[in-house]
Every structure is written in C-alpha cells, then in structure tokens.
Design a protein around this nucleic acid. Structure first.
Length: 456
RNA sequence: GUGUCGUUAGCUUAGUGGUAAAGCAAAAGAUUGUGGAUCUUUUUAGACGGGUUCGAUUCUCGUACGACACCCCA
C-alpha cells in the first residue's frame, strides 16, 4: 500500500519557526498597545454552541460556519424520512450542536452576558485567537486565521471611538506601516437612505456604494437599479457620491443635505466629535471620511472604521465599528459596544511585501557549546546552568559529532556565539569563545563569556 | 456557492504518447579542535480515481488540493 501523502485542510497553514517569530512580533506589538490603553485579555473556546453563532452573521455567514458533528451515534435521533428528504438544513440541526467560532465579537457578547455580574463596566477587553470560516481561500483570506480584537462594552461615549483610533495609530506606527484610516457612520448612511426616500433599502444601498472604488460609479448605479431602487432615488444619491473636499467640507455639505433627517444629523454630529477628539489627541495618522465605506457586518450602528495600508496592495488590514445592543439577543439589552479587529495575516503579508520585519526577530539560541565527548559534555552542563541563570539562551550539541557538523548547526541556526571546551579548557577553566559573525576567538572565563554575549 | 488557471524529487522548474532532466536542499566524503567556499558521491518525483490507447506523466473526464477573481469578508 502506498504511503499516505500528508496534507492539511484547505485554507489552513503550518507556521515554521521563522514565520512564528514574525507572527509573534506582530502579536506582541498589538498586545503591548492593547495593554497600554488598559484593555484586559480574555479567551473563549474554539467551539461555541451553534445556537450562539447562527443568525448573527446573516444568511451568508451561516453558510460559512464550520459545524462540528455530534459525538457518538449522531444519527440515532434522526428519523429516516427526514434523512431521505435530504434536507441538509434540518438534518444539520439534529446532528450538530456546536460550531467553530466565526469571529471574536459574538463570543465576546455571549461572554459579557454570561459573566455580567463579575464584569466592571465599561469593560475593555482584548482577545487574540484564531477564528474559522468555510470560505473559499484567496489572497489574504484563509479558512483559519487570527483576529486581534479590542472592544469596549457598556459605554456610549465617543471617547472610546477616539481611543481606538489612537491605538490603530500606535500599532501601525510601531510596525512602520503607513496607513490611512477611513471613517464613516452608519447613522449617516441611514440618513442618506432616508432623504432619498429609500429608508428600508439601507443594506442594498450600502452594499452597492461600497463597491464604488472597485467598479466605478456607472456600475454602482446599475447595481442600485438591479437591487430595486427607484431611478429618482438613484438620481438624488448622485450629489452625495460626488461629494468632494476635506472631511470638514464634506460634513458641512452633508449637514444641509441631511438636515431633514434626524438620524443623519446625529451621525454627522458623532463623526464631528470623533474628529475633534482625534485632533485633540494629536493623532498622527490621516483620517478620511469615506461615505462609501459600508462593508462589514450589519450589526454596526454608529462609527465604521477601516484601515488601509498606503504602500501595499492589500484589502483592509483593520476594521471595526460601534454596535448597539449586540448583547440584546443574549438577554442583556441596551448595552453598547465599540471595537476594532486587526487582521494579523494581512499585516504579515504587508510587512513581508514592504520588507519591514526587524532583522533580529529570529534570535533564538545565543550560544552553543560544542560537544567534544562524554567527559567534556558533562563538564559543560554546569556551565550551561550558570549561563542560563544569567538569562542567556544556551544549548549543548547533544552528540559528539564532527566539528564541521556542529559548526554548521550553529551557522544554520544563526547562533551568534560558540563555546569550545576541550581538555585544555577543562584544565585551565579558560574557555574558547568564538564569534560566529566575525570569526574572532577569545580565551575567557565563563563570567567574561556571559558579559561578551550579553554585550553583543 | 460561481468562474479561470494550475498540480512533475524536500523546494524551484524543464521536457516527452514508449528509459523523466536540471538547479537548490539534504546525507556522506575530500578535512579526527573550527561554520559559510569548492569538488566528488548518494538519496528522493508526474495529486488521486476513471476513460481512450499495444503503451498515458503527456490526450480526456471526475475528485482533491493550490493560486487568482466574483459573492461575501479579516
């Protein structure tokens, strides 16, 4: 029988040590920023009950959920007729009660409701975990990927929105990526729908105008028409799509356009406040009011945030917004939240494309002891303990292989120093330290070796 | 869920209806206390399943996987 060729499921990836070093660099950077703003970590299970997940992401989202088959004899309660009917949806609910999480926001909402009595509000939490989507993979899109979320729940204040913008600013400044933060507000979109007389078609409108960048005005109008908007409404939308100028100018124009809409006016006030707060905090990253920014989950109710890398061809590398009453469905109404989610894999791709990973991300072992034989290796054990106590990562080559092999090992692993301990060194206590980069060799005591390695 | 293109050694790629080629990598040696260079030798391959054919890695169909785009989204 042929040996089975190993593989991993579609859209998933292995991460080798070099990749892990780079990924951890991203996670560590994001985590340090989250911490600095007072966010606390939580984790939730990879699996949630399907009842928690279903219906939260729209019909499309439900299809993209990975469902986990019940354990044991999962067919025993399914009646034959139903099976014969081949109604996948109905059968699914009977044979699967758990699913892999699709994002971190819904599990967080569930967490908040379940732990409401132990939580101090406003609750600021961050969460860095993988999520799963049964989507077809493509560039920058995987079936298993990490999200790095920070949310504030239980506060309506727009200070939270401004704070999230500052965190985005900090993260990308630290990573060295130039970005543009795009802002919009669901209330403004609702106001627009209202004044063009198509209030109940908000979703159709936003899905279509979201594509303005990609497919152009003409096609957007065509799509709006296909989605059933009246020609009159489309005509009234045009001046809004053509809006030019800086953020303040756009807002002023919109103020008159949306003056008849209470919700639209409210949205404009909100975005103005956020811009004011950002100015006050000396936000460095450029903010752009982008009315075509609408993508994202239907549960956003206020601010919508999206971050684009300026020097790389990549979709959004961070997104977020405000969602009122996300916990309502779990029995805790009237709690508002706002959050952002950093897409680690896309940041990885951008850093790779722009060659922005720092060179020292891969430092592992700092010094290798060459193994000359049993006697010498035993002697090295004490030295290893000493050197590790000083916080220097060190290893002994486990076999007394040829020098060439041991040196190549150090070279391949980019270990900067090698210590050689043979008869002579054991007699005198003076070790031979070799700098692998320069090739220099020194005769030093263990204490001097440590100093030299640390000083490197 | 739809479409396009693809899948040959550990990796990158060539080529052919009849014996499958190279570079890199890996292992051993040239060199028994000194790595990166060079040379020698060795290891390992046409995703899977059908069809056409005397014969298929090559043509064809299906499946899986991958890349890209659409839908949607991080």
């Amino acid at each position: 029988m042929a040996v089975q060729k190993p593989s991993i499921p579609k859209g998933t990836r292995d991460f080798s040590p070099v990749e892990m070093a780079k990924r951890n660099y991203i996670f560590d950077t994001i985590r340090s920023v989250f911490k600095r703003y007072g966010y606390l970590p939580i984790e939730t299970p990879a699996m949630e009950n399907l009842s928690t997940l279903l219906g939260k992401y729209g019909e499309e989202g439900d299809k993209l959920l990975f469902k986990v088959l019940n354990s044991g004899d999962f067919l025993k309660d399914v009646n034959k007729d139903l099976l014969d009917s081949a109604d996948s949806n109905k059968v699914t609910t009977l044979i699967s009660e758990k699913g892999l999480r699709y994002d971190l926001t819904v599990p967080f909402a569930r967490y908040v409701v379940q732990h409401r009595n132990e939580i101090v509000f406003p609750f600021k939490r961050y969460q860095i975990q993988p999520v799963w989507r049964a989507d077809r993979p493509q560039k920058g899109r995987y079936r298993e990927f990490y999200q790095c979320d920070a949310d504030v729940i239980g506060s309506d204040s727009l200070f939270n929105e401004a704070e999230l913008l500052l965190m985005i600013d900090d993260v990308y400044t630290q990573l060295g990526i130039n970005v543009l933060i795009k802002l919009n507000n669901r209330k403004i979109l609702a106001g627009i729908a209202e004044v063009i007389g198509e209030s109940d078609r908000l979703v159709d409108i936003t899905v279509a105008i979201d594509k303005l960048d990609k497919i152009g005005l003409e096609n957007v109008n065509k799509e709006l028409e296909e989605r059933g908007l009246s020609l009159d409404a489309i005509a009234r939308l045009q001046p809004i799509l053509h809006l030019k100028g800086n953020n303040r100018e756009k807002i002023n124009s919109l103020k008159s356009i949306l003056s008849s809409s209470t919700i639209g006016t409210k949205g404009l006030e909100e975005i103005e406040t956020v811009l004011d707060l950002a100015d006050q905090s000396e936000l460095k990253t450029e903010l752009e009011l982008d009315l075509t920014l609408a993508r994202g989950l239907n549960y956003y109710t206020g601010a919508i945030i999206e971050v684009k890398a300026l020097d790389a061809q990549m979709g959004s590398i961070c997104g977020g917004g405000r969602y009122d009453d996300l916990t309502g469905i779990f029995g805790l109404p009237g709690v508002s939240g706002v959050g952002v989610s950093f897409g680690a894999e896309r940041i990885y791709d951008v850093l790779t494309e722009l060659n922005l990973f720092p060179v020292d991300t891969l430092t592992g072992t700092e010094v290798l002891f060459v193994n000359f034989g049993q006697k010498e290796a035993l002697y090295c054990l004490k030295l290893l303990t000493t050197i590790r106590k000083e916080g220097v990562s060190a290893e002994l080559y486990p076999e007394s292989a040829k020098m060439k092999k041991q040196m190549s090992y150090a070279d391949d692993k980019k270990i900067p120093f090698v210590i050689l301990v043979g008869d002579e060194e054991m007699n005198t206590g003076i070790l031979t330290l070799k700098n692998m980069k320069s090739g220099e060799q020194f005769k030093l005591t263990i204490a001097e070796c440590i100093e030299k390695i640390k000083g490197n």
